[in-house]
Every structure is written in C-alpha cells, then in structure tokens.
Amino acid sequence: MNELFIAAVERLSRVAGVRGALLVEGETGVTVISDLREGVNETAVAALAASLFRRTAAASETADFGRLNTLQLEADDGHVVAVDAGELILVVVAEHDAQLGLVRYEAHRAAESLS
C-alpha cells in the first residue's frame, strides 16, 4: 500500500506546473507521504488544505449537496487541488499557470488508484 501511495504522489508531482503533491490524513491534517518542490512548506500545505477540505466538506453535507469529492482553491499565485481519497486527502499544489484540467484529471486518477 505504501508503494502505491508513493507511486501516486510521485506521478502527480511530475505533471507540468505542479509544485508538489501529498497525501494527508483528513482528520488530523498530518502528512502521510509527500513529494514537494523545495520551498513548499509541507506542514502548512497538509494542515491548511485538509482543514479547508474538511470545513467545505461539512458545509456541503449540511447544505444537502452530499459528499465533497474535489476542492480547487484558486489564488493569484497558485492553486491547491484536494481530492477525497477515503480517510486520506490527496493534495496538489500547482503554479498559477498550470493546466488545471490536467491536474484535476491526474489527481482524480491518483485518488482512484488509492481507493
């Protein structure tokens, strides 16, 4: 299983425009496995992305929109894509000009391979 995690994260990290990918424990926001470019704060990405995911997932369920599958945070200097992977969350940090469609597609593929 561990190798599967590593392979999924490494594959995602190789997508153009991706600054790194990591698998995070949804409940605690602690990293399980990561592959990040230098300068990306792993603790921060894991904790904040998981927290944002958890909060919006709870909002989605409260509003009767069901389980949250994917979150995409768009910002001036980059993007964060987080995909539900059971008890884990697959998080991708991407450059502002990354091909988000491709990033999302690869992230979904990776998340599916984990479940």
Partner: peptide
C-alpha cells in the same frame, strides 16, 4: 474547529 496539523503549524 482545528486539527493537530493546524496546531502544529501555528505552534511552529
């Protein structure tokens, strides 16, 4: 409202 990861991050 918080998590271990968040607490660790802001503790750092």
């Amino acid at each position: 409202d918080s998590s271990l990861g968040i607490v660790r991050l802001f503790y750092e």
